[in-house]
């Protein structure tokens, strides 16, 4: 905390009693695996002090699955694209939205976890993939999707332990 204050004298002088800028993350980046890594690092760093280690691990996993799905399937062979990640911290958790200009998300990605239980990769079949959306559905809440003008918007919440204060 001390280091953070020292590094931001301007913000301190401007007032901003609860430092609202620390509760919002907004970032656009290239749709490739290394840019996803950098975005995850930046997003985690922004909210790290407001989460437990376990919550941070869950957040990183959900975001990685969502973002890498866009890289691999949304843009796929197309190669180039941009992803925009926005996150807002409120009292109960993190509201996240992710937008991209890739192909439409298949409808079954959004089915309720109970509906697609049978499609869950079976460990004894030694699956090498297909885990991503199950992890997302297991860990995120209020998953919603909207597509308009060729643009995908995926929104979800990650519940977190309430903030002190």
């Amino acid at each position: 905390m001390l280091a953070d204050r020292a590094a931001r004298p301007a913000a301190r002088q401007a007032g901003a009693p609860d430092r609202p800028e620390a509760r919002i993350f907004h970032h656009s980046f290239a749709a490739d695996a290394l840019s996803v890594r950098a975005a995850l690092r930046a997003a985690l760093a922004r909210f790290m002090r407001q989460m437990t280690r376990d919550e941070a691990g869950t957040l990183e996993l959900v975001l990685a699955e969502v973002l890498n799905n866009i890289v691999e399937h949304g843009y796929g062979d197309n190669g180039h694209g941009t992803i925009t990640l926005s996150m807002v911290r409120d009292r109960r958790g993190l509201s996240c939205s992710v937008s991209d200009d890739g192909v439409e998300l298949p409808a079954d990605c959004l089915l309720h976890a109970d509906t697609v239980q049978d499609l869950r990769p079976q460990p004894d079949h030694l699956p090498e993939g297909g885990f991503g959306w199950f992890l997302i559905r297991d860990l995120a809440e209020d998953l919603g999707y909207h597509r308009s003008n060729g643009r995908n918007l995926l929104a979800f919440r990650l519940p977190l332990k309430p903030l002190e204060s």
Partner: peptide, 10 residues
């Protein structure tokens, strides 16, 4: 410290 579904698949 971090494994995602691609790492698990690998």
């Amino acid at each position: 410290e971090f494994l995602d579904s691609s790492g698990l698949g690998a």
